[in-house]
Amino acid sequence: MTPTRGTRHPPAAEQPLLLRPTLEFDDFYAANVRTITGQIFAYTGDRAEAEDLVAEAFCRALARWHKVQDYENPTAWVRRVAWNLATSHLRRRTVAQRFLKRQQEVHEPPPDGDRVDLMRALAGIGERHRKAVILRYMAGLTVAEIAHQEGVPEATVRSWLARGKAALAGRLAVHDEMEER
């Protein structure tokens, strides 16, 4: 998918030449990095991994910043790159972890309280369902925006969301029952 071009930049006279792009990227980075990293963290369940993946996504954005900054929604571009990297990484991680065994995996403690259950429940549902639910409820994307990002029909996204929510509800119910015993 090619991001659409957006509004024109201010006239050159308004921009401090040379410094302006750097400042823009830094502002853009500061405004988005925590939000996107939080979403990828919820998706992968590994904080350090999420930080690395999102850093890589921002590196790619900076390398193409002269183009990305002109996109209508640079945040959507970086978010998509980060999610693509995370998806690709998750697909290979299982195999790599099983066979490498060269380092002790360090799991960050999950958030406290009820969020523990939600993180656990998220980890237990299908990859696509998890992605759809996080994009919808953590990133606040609409069904159409998720469909655009993932390159699938909106009906598919609605199906993922319905299944994901049902799976989450089931897993949260199991946790509730276990705690009540």
Binding site: R34, T37, G38, F41, A42, R47, V54, P111, M119, M138
Partner: peptide
């Protein structure tokens, strides 16, 4: 969860 996750990460 989003709020908590954003506070936890250290980019």
């Amino acid at each position: 969860l989003a709020h908590a996750a954003e506070l936890m990460v250290d980019p």
